[in-house]
Amino acid sequence: MIYAIIIGCEIAFWVLIAAGLAARYLLRRPRLGAVLLLLTPVVDLVLLAAAAIDLRGGGRADFAHTLAAIYLGFSVAYGHRMVKWADVRFAHRFAGGPAPVRLSGSAYTLKCWKDVPFTLLAVGIAAGLLWLLTAIAPDPAQVTALGDTYRILGIILGIDVVWAISYTVWPKKAPAEAVQRA
């Protein structure tokens, strides 16, 4: 059940973003677009409520609850950046906006390092949600599986730091066509 809600929330998240950007650029209704984009956090609340209700009602914690917490953490931490990412591409494709910039070299390395605090925030939010889900469960035995998730969160953060370090040591090269133009 929780898996279906997670999938539904992910679909709803992107549908709201697409509808918001379509309203903003295709329909020339920026206020409607803003309202639709501002509704994306409601999707996160629906998922959080579903996970909490499931556990509070006696459901046994499993990987779906772990996935829900991780999804929520990353959605909250990276949600605004994902909307901006989509906005730039939508504006370029449908409204004559500038092309998205493809980063390389030190600019890409800097972006990787700027992602680390967002990943730390996402991991922190997910850990807090796991704690909350554990606290509201009527029987501590039904949420023991959530305890293993903290290690997964540490691995996720570690991967992001290693990613940033790797691009510090080996910077991303510019695309071949960009080098030829220069």
Rank of each mutant, 00 (worst) to 15 (best):
G154C: 04
K111I: 00
D160A: 06
W14K: 10
V35L: 14
D115W: 04
L157P: 02
Y167G: 05
V83K: 10
Y78A: 10
W163F: 14
G128H: 10
M82H: 12
I70G: 00
G154A: 03
Q180R: 15
I5E: 02
A18N: 05
A135G: 03
V179S: 10
L45Q: 10
A127G: 11
A91I: 12
R181T: 14
R93I: 04
L27F: 11
L55N: 04
F74T: 01
V83T: 13
G105N: 10
L55Q: 09
V143K: 03
Y108V: 03
A49E: 10
Y71D: 04
R93P: 01
I159Y: 09
V42D: 07
T119H: 09
A174S: 09
R24L: 01
A18T: 08
V116C: 12
V123G: 03
K111Q: 14
V162S: 01
F63D: 06
P41T: 04
I2G: 01
V162Q: 01
V76Q: 11
I70L: 00
P30E: 13
F94G: 00
L21C: 06
F90Y: 15
L39P: 00
G73S: 07
L72V: 11
V116G: 06
I6D: 03
C9S: 09
G158H: 12
A22D: 01
V179L: 14
G154F: 02
G124S: 07
A49R: 14
L39T: 06
D62I: 01
H80I: 15
T40E: 11
G158Q: 12
A64H: 04
F63P: 00
W14C: 07
Y150Q: 02
V35N: 04
G96Y: 05
A176Q: 08
G73C: 03
A77D: 05
F63N: 07
K173T: 13
L21V: 05
T134D: 12
R56C: 00
D54V: 08
Q180D: 11
Y71K: 09
C112I: 01
V169C: 06
D87Q: 06
G97Y: 09
A86I: 02
G73L: 02
L38A: 15
A145D: 08
R81K: 09
T109Y: 01
P138R: 12
A18M: 10
L157A: 15
C112L: 08
T144Q: 14
R31N: 09
V123D: 07
A141F: 01
K84S: 13
L72Y: 07
G105F: 08
L37N: 06
Y167K: 07
G73T: 02
I159A: 12
H65I: 05
Y71S: 03
A61E: 05
L16H: 11
A182Y: 03
R181K: 15
T134C: 05
L27R: 15
P171L: 05
L129I: 14
P41Q: 08
Y3P: 04
L72R: 07
D54Q: 07
A69C: 07
L47Y: 12
L130D: 02
V42C: 11
L48S: 04
D54C: 06
A164Q: 06
A122P: 08
P98S: 15
G57K: 10
G158A: 12
P138G: 14
